[in-house]
């Protein structure tokens, strides 16, 4: 009986810790939302940090990542295209391509890549800043670390995810036109392709797409920052903080994707 009690106690404490960790994340999400939307957050110093964040997150990787996304898109277009050709389902193949590649895979792939590259870096940096007392040091000289170091990263990271997703979508649509309409003598014309884009990417779909991408961008910065801020001031906690942040981020991205799918298809 006492073993059961101890087990339940342990599970209960674990659940309570899990709940309070998510509570802290949501608390920081609210703070970040208010801060990002507040004009008083921005001055010459914070704008420099935003620019640096956009440079490191989007501009630095743009050619390589766009090339990778293009190769990935060609692969998907060829798989779907050749299958559709085999069964004569040209229109359905085209619709499937736009729905799967443009609306679902590319935004999620971009968010996952930025999460791995930038999210992990932000989580580590904020955790080290917390551990080494740099945040406190800034506060002591009259600098608000939230305004100078954290919110500009949220803005820069979110803008980068939106921009990279947009670039990847444009590249994928251009490749679809090239491979399905121009290179293969299908029965579809450029007009069919344009009409299909108009049909699939209607206003509600676009609203869901960009809301989802915005949520992805916010998540890939806010969750690592929140996790970094909650790191205990001991060096050995740094990798634990990054591990937790990345798991929480992956889970959040999947939840956002599932929520978007539910809105569109259920």
């Amino acid at each position: 009986m006492s073993a059961l009690h101890a087990w339940l106690n342990l599970r209960g404490r674990g659940f309570s810790d899990w709940l309070s960790a998510w509570g802290r994340v949501f608390g920081f999400v609210m703070t970040a939302l208010v801060g990002v939307l507040s004009p008083s957050t921005y001055n010459k110093a914070t704008r420099v940090v935003v620019q640096k964040q956009i440079y490191f997150t989007a501009w630095q990787i743009l050619p390589g990542f766009a090339f990778f996304a293009a190769l990935f898109s060609i692969l998907i277009i060829e798989i779907v295209g050749s299958t559709a050709r085999k069964y004569g389902l040209y229109e359905q193949g085209l619709e499937l391509l736009i729905r799967i590649l443009v609306l679902e895979i590319l935004p999620l792939m971009t968010a996952l890549f930025i999460a791995l590259r930038t999210g992990a870096a932000i989580n580590t940096e904020v955790a080290l800043m917390k551990i080494q007392n740099e945040l406190d040091a800034m506060q002591r000289i009259g600098i608000d670390p939230l305004r100078l170091e954290l919110l500009p990263r949220v803005v820069g990271g979110t803008v980068s995810v939106l921009a990279l997703t947009a670039v990847n979508i444009v590249v994928a649509l251009w490749l679809t036109q090239l491979l399905i309409i121009d290179f293969h003598p299908w029965t579809l014309t450029t007009g069919d392709f344009t009409r299909m884009i108009g049909k699939v990417l209607d206003l509600p779909a676009l609203i869901v797409l960009w809301s989802k991408t915005l949520a992805f961008g916010f998540a890939v910065t806010v969750i690592p920052i929140s996790e970094g801020l909650n790191t205990p001031q001991k060096l050995f906690h740094a990798p634990i903080s990054v591990l937790r942040g990345m798991v929480r981020l992956f889970f959040s991205l999947m939840v956002i994707e599932a929520a978007a799918l539910t809105i569109v298809y259920v």
């Binding site: 010459k44 420099v48 800043m129 007392n133 740099e134 040091a137 100078l148």
Partner: peptide, 18 residues
Amino acid sequence: PLRANLSVLENITVVLQF
């Protein structure tokens, strides 16, 4: 401590800028 990812000059400059 100083901000570890900023140079000495930037550590001083950022106070003025902010």
